[in-house]
C-alpha cells in the first residue's frame, strides 16, 4: 500500500507572543514545528504501515527551503521519504492555489512510485486554521474525502473502514480506495523517533520540486492563482474600559459581583 501524507511547517503557536506596543506578533526566534494535526496524520500512516507490511509512507510539504526540516523530521519518525515543493512562483498562494500545486506533486509521485492508495492530512493547520487544503487536494485529484478522522483500517483491497468524529458522536464509514482523509488529534500522538530512523534522517535530503518539475498552469499557482486577496490587515479593537479589581480576595470578589450585577450578569 502507498500512503502520501501532506505536512506543513508552522510557527509553534504556544510560543508566539504579542508585542504590546505594535500589537504585532513576535515571530522572530519562534521555532518552526510540524503542524500538530499533521503529526497525527503521520502517526495514522505509520500505524497502517505497522499493520500492513510492504506499505510505504511518503511525505510532501510545500514551503520555503527550510521546510525540508519538517520532512527530515517525518523520516526520523518512520516515513520512508518525502518531497519538498518550493519556489518563488508558489509564494502568496491561498488554499485554492496550494491545493492545486500539491495535487500536481502527488500526481508526480504516482508517476514513479505508483498511485497512492491513501492521502492523509492534518484536519487543519494551526497557523491558518482553514481546514481547506486537504479536501481541496482530494478534489483536484478526484478522490473521495472524509474529514476529521480518528482511525482508518484496511477492510479489503478496495475499501477502508474509517471512523469520523462529528459534533455529537462517531460515524463509521466504508470508503473506496484511493481516498483522502483529514486527521484529528484523536488518531494519536506521533510516536517517538527511533534511533535507526533518526540516523537515516540525519543524512536524508528530500528532492525539491519547483515549476520545472511540476509544470503547473501558471494561472493557477502563487498569488496569481489565488481567488482570495487580503484587502486589509488591522489590529483587533482593544477593549478600552478594562478595569483591575484590587483588594483582598474577599474585597475583589465583592467588587466583581457588584460590577456583574450592574451588567445584570448575576
Amino acid at each position: 500500500m502507498k500512503i502520501v501524507v501532506c505536512i506543513k511547517q508552522v510557527p509553534d503557536s504556544d510560543k508566539v507572543t504579542i508585542d504590546r506596543t505594535t500589537n504585532r506578533l513576535n515571530r522572530a526566534g519562534v521555532p518552526a514545528v510540524v503542524n500538530p494535526f499533521d503529526e497525527n496524520a503521520l502517526e495514522l500512516a505509520l500505524k497502517l504501515k505497522d499493520a500492513n507490511p510492504g506499505t510505504t509512507v511518503t511525505v510532501v510539504s510545500m514551503g520555503p527551503p527550510q521546510a525540508a526540516e519538517a520532512i527530515k523530521e517525518a523520516v526520523a519518525h518512520g516515513a520512508d521519504g518525502g518531497v519538498l515543493v518550493s519556489g518563488r512562483e508558489f509564494g502568496g498562494a491561498d488554499t485554492w492555489a496550494t491545493g492545486y500545486t500539491l495535487s500536481l506533486a502527488i500526481r508526480k509521485i504516482a508517476e514513479t512510485d505508483g498511485p497512492a492508495d491513501l492521502l492523509l492530512f492534518g484536519k487543519q493547520a494551526t497557523d491558518g486554521d482553514t481546514a481547506q487544503v486537504g479536501p481541496g487536494i482530494a478534489t483536484h485529484l478526484g478522490v473521495p474525502c472524509l474529514t476529521c478522522v480518528q482511525s482508518c483500517e484496511v477492510l479489503d483491497d478496495k475499501t477502508f473502514k474509517v471512523v469520523r468524529i462529528v459534533e455529537d458522536g462517531r460515524e463509521e464509514w466504508e470508503v473506496q480506495r484511493p481516498c483522502a482523509l483529514t486527521v484529528a488529534r484523536e488518531a494519536g500522538d506521533l510516536r517517538i523517533a527511533n534511533l535507526r530512523c533518526k540516523m537515516k534522517a540525519k543524512s536524508y535530503q528530500p528532492p525539491t520540486w519547483g515549476v520545472a518539475e511540476l509544470s503547473p498552469n501558471p494561472d493557477f499557482i502563487g498569488l496569481k492563482g489565488s481567488p482570495t486577496r487580503v484587502a486589509k490587515v488591522f489590529a483587533p479593537p482593544v477593549k478600552t474600559n478594562r478595569e483591575r479589581i484590587e483588594g483582598t480576595p474577599a474585597e475583589q470578589a465583592a467588587k466583581l459581583i457588584e460590577r456583574l450585577a450592574e451588567r445584570h450578569l448575576v
Binding site: G99, Q132, V133, A138, T139, H140, T147
Partner: peptide, 23 residues
C-alpha cells in the same frame, strides 16, 4: 463551519475555482 460544512465548502470551492474564506 461545522464538521460537515468544513467538508462541503472546500470541496465545492475547489470544483468551482472560487475563493473561500474560513471562519
Amino acid at each position: 463551519a461545522t464538521t460537515n460544512g468544513r467538508s462541503l465548502a472546500p470541496t465545492a470551492a475547489a470544483i468551482l475555482h472560487c475563493g473561500l474564506t474560513a471562519d
